[in-house]
Design a protein around this nucleic acid. Structure first.
Lengths: 190, 190, 190, 190
DNA sequence: AATGAATGAGTGTTCATTCAT
DNA sequence: AATGAATGAACACTCATTCAT
């Protein structure tokens, strides 16, 4: 009732996450996913109409989890600096807990296979980020930059850090150091 | 018979750059490249023994050009800040002039198809970057961070910017703003 | 659902035997075999990893059957002449029952595609023949020839006969006549 | 004017003989022949319209030479035994002088690529042989066998010998021994 | 006359998808 | 519901043939 009685759909998604992240969409064969999931090839098609649909279900699942985790509301009144730190800790926390999923999300962020729903999910993330930066600019705490630029810089830095983690595990000092760097990057200096 | 008569090898490389960047290695079919290049399928194999060899020739060509352009020596005595700006301007300059190539390089930085020579070319780039940051840390101008972390943050931010450029052309103000952000990110503050 | 339901692997082997014998290894395309077998092209690769493996499976199967049939032990005490006749009848019997297979074996006796196992199977056949002739020479019943020469002459004559059968079916008188010729060829005359 | 000034057609035929004998018709690529002949690929098509035509020209050339050499008239009045020995020596002589060509002829004796002219050349050879055996049967010197059978046995034995030569050079004793065997095979015994 | 770069139909092989069980 | 054998379109790659030079 715990591990043994897993839904096969879940087993398939788990195997697909692993393989798509390692080999990419085109480099991964459906029977390969089936074998890794321990199900028959045909079974995959009982849960997902096509390989693309499986891919989008997987992306949607993790992008949704990511958004839910990172974009949750903060206690009202939290400062820009506090929220920045919060976002940072959440993103890092998610990445440390789900490194495969995080790399999968990054790798396929612009994949041509993404459907409209998933594009919107990705966009929602950007919208929140843009709003946050706009607010920080308005309060004068952040540099007067186009929010998209700030978001891009933060996101890119984060992703590079995630990739780094595959080689060199991120310790608390590193994480805190990176946070300081990035806060210095965007805050307005005296 | 003059301008029309381009080397077919070059036409093939140009078409491959475009397609590999858009669709990735596994997502691009050799006949697709041939058609985009305006040559017969078989012709590709007169210039490159395999699809992998074509890929590596392409990567090597652009990684070489990138390294030559970005890593060229600076005038002696240039400050850390000056060199940081120099690197930044060169990287942005290259990216603006060759956006497809830059994205291609980023996308396949860790591709399993890269041969040893190309892996070394990629490494050379990282070595120079690491050395630069170590020096800046030693002079006390940069934050005391592991150089790999600093490099990762810079590189990731740059790549995010490159991707952004596909959507929103980078103006001078944006470039300068990003440079200021990143310098603030790494420099030691009073 | 009974007789119609043949193993596809067998259908493939049967079609391949026919085509390899008529057209040789390089002259036979895998889709051609598939069509002759009445299966899809891809199906062949569910049974045999490569064309070479199919070829070797086919060769091994028939060389094994041939050896089992022809090289079976004789009742002890049987004379050289008796054994010669026995071998002859078995070889002819096999060839009449499996003419395609026999020609296939002859055609590919020295094929570069044969794997080690099959080379050994071919060699085993020659070893028995050499031993038989050596024994006949030792008893004084056969001419004092190098066994390899005698084996070559016999084998060559047999194969020519097999090819002849494709044009002119072998009757009992012909078979007996040929046996008499060949026995006269190798026996020591007064 | 001797070796340097060879006709390119001859160079091509010589290279083709070598490769067809080693690799078969389907296993040999036209550019491979061109390279072995030291000419350009296109040049082959100035001498032979297609690969098949080259093959047939080659076969015709050697089959013609073989027939001319082996089937030449004997001095009138030569006995059956004498003529048998004559044929044998000529066949062996040709094979020793032109081992590649002999194996090439044997290998492609029944090739599907042979044109009508070449089929007739092969047939002429069989006709002479058949006539010879029929005459020997008529004089009572040879066993009363269908000539085709006798010819098949002789030809097969010869070819086996030729193949043997590739492994174990034929000495005079071997050749004479084989001749004795084969004469014993066909002559009528007391 | 001679070439070899160029080609596209054809090769061996893979894989997303189907379907009888 | 679950399977995995079966498939054929598509893949990477080859080669007989052509043709501009």
């Amino acid at each position: 009732m715990t591990i043994l009685k897993q839904d096969k759909g879940e087993l398939i998604l788990a195997a697909a996450l692993d393989l798509f992240e390692k080999q990419g969409f085109d480099g991964t064969a459906v029977p390969e996913i089936a074998e890794a999931a321990g199900v028959g090839t045909g079974t995959i098609y009982r849960y997902f109409a096509t390989k693309e649909e499986l891919f989008n279900a997987l992306y949607g699942r993790w992008r949704g989890a990511y958004n839910d985790f990172v974009l949750a509301e903060f206690p009202p009144g939290l400062s820009i600096r506090g929220r920045f730190g919060g976002y940072w800790r959440r993103m890092i926390g998610f990445a440390k807990q789900h490194p495969h999923a995080t790399r999968f999300l990054e790798l396929h962020h612009h994949a041509p296979h993404l459907d409209e729903t998933n594009r919107e999910l990705s966009q929602r993330y950007l919208d929140v980020a843009n709003t946050f930066f706009a607010e920080g600019v308005a309060t004068g705490e952040l540099k007067d930059l186009p929010p998209r630029l700030a978001v891009a810089l933060m996101w890119g830095a984060l992703m590079a850090l995630i990739k780094l983690e595959a080689v060199m595990p991120l310790e608390e000092a590193t994480i805190a150091g990176a946070e300081a760097c990035l806060w210095d990057a965007i805050r307005k200096h005296a």
